[in-house]
Design a protein around this nucleic acid. Structure first.
Length: 347
RNA sequence: GUAUGACCGGCACUAGA
């Protein structure tokens, strides 16, 4: 059993889900009884690969062979249904469960409702969970809090934080980061900074995500020297500067009209081995286009393709807008067709 | 070994008004 599940693990970790599944069905059935651990491994693989349909097939398969999926397997399926935006199926699946739930069962559902901006349903569902005798966790509350903040419902968010604390929870680094990000995005960067300091005084060393949230906020508020100071702290603290941090900084520079600085920073960033994503290119292309430098944007678009970086829907939106504004309709139409060829749906 | 592990929440880009 240990050998078999270990082997499956290796296959799954290597991204060879189908091979793992085949092994489980065709070989292991004869050698050892396929057990929950083995099915869990395979379902985990398919879910992580976004192959929710296959994952569900595996679950039906194990049921057919007389093995009941356990709650971890249900949790994996629900998580993946939520992640793929399939809330209807996620709740339908949830409704079929007749076993004891864990917080991994309901938290992804709450989070998905919040992400879909369906806050009233998120609160309603949480209430139902409580009525069934389960207790929300800090994760549940952080999802709700984050949803409220992203909708600009700051007052309700602050009330919720008080409630959470009153219930005896100690805010953790993720909750703090959500609050910092929310405040910054609502234009309350000052208060975001305060929360950042509060977080530290509570003994949490900010991680890369917390730093990014604050730096992004400062850059959007065009508080560039402050952003630089925080960035230096980030480096000192040994955080890994991700492409997201770089992109936030580039975007801030572009939107502050500092195109030249942005481009120099971009080059320095690439020199350091930072790999640009489509968002990075989008930020620069939009910056150039907003300054009327269409040809530079076209050049960046080309460079993005050359580097094997797939343009996204936003990339095309940016280029099409730029070309239309420059009255280059034929070229705009050319990009539009390329976009369709990539099976991107115009929004 | 009423242990342990696996599954949950936070960060970057585009239009119009």
């Amino acid at each position: 059993k240990f050998t078999c599940s270990g082997l499956l693990n290796i296959f799954v970790k290597a991204g060879k889900n189908c091979e793992a599944y085949k092994l489980l069905r065709e070989e292991f059935a004869a050698i050892c009884q396929p057990d929950l651990v083995m099915y869990r491994t395979v379902v985990f693989g398919f879910c992580n690969a976004g192959e929710i349909k296959v994952a569900c097939d595996v679950v039906s398969d194990m049921k057919a062979s007389g093995l009941e999926p356990d709650i971890v397997i249900h949790n994996l399926i629900i998580r993946e249904l939520c992640a793929s935006g399939n809330l209807v199926d996620a709740f339908a699946y949830f409704d079929t469960l007749e076993v004891e739930l864990t917080h991994y069962t309901f938290n992804p559902l709450v989070a998905a409702l919040c992400k879909a901006e369906r806050m009233e349903e998120a609160f309603g569902f949480t209430k139902k969970i409580v009525e069934r005798g389960y207790s929300p966790t800090l994760v549940t509350y952080t999802s709700l809090l984050d949803g409220l903040l992203k909708l600009g419902r700051l007052d309700e968010a602050l009330v919720l934080v008080d409630e959470v604390v009153a219930r005896g929870f100690v805010l953790d680094a993720v909750t703090y980061t959500s609050i910092i990000d929310g405040l910054c995005k609502l234009g309350k960067v000052e208060e975001g900074c305060d929360k950042f300091h509060e977080m530290r005084s509570c003994g949490y060393e900010p991680d890369a995500i917390a730093y990014n949230a604050l730096i992004d906020g400062l850059m959007k508020a065009k508080l560039i020297p402050q952003a630089q100071r925080v960035y230096r702290q980030m480096l000192q603290s040994g955080c890994v500067v991700s492409i997201m941090t770089c992109t936030s900084i580039l975007d801030g520079l572009c939107k502050a009209g500092m195109l030249q600085e942005a481009y120099v920073t971009f080059l320095a960033m690439e020199d350091r081995g930072c790999i640009s994503t489509a968002v990075t290119y989008n930020v620069l292309m939009d910056g150039f286009i907003s300054k009327g430098k269409l040809s530079a944007a076209v050049e960046l678009f080309r460079q993005m393709l050359d580097r094997g970086c797939e343009p996204t829907l936003v990339s095309y939106n940016i280029m099409i807008r730029g070309l239309c504004q420059a009255r280059k309709l034929a070229k705009a139409y050319f990009y539009f067709e390329k976009m369709l060829q990539r099976r991107l749906r115009p929004d």
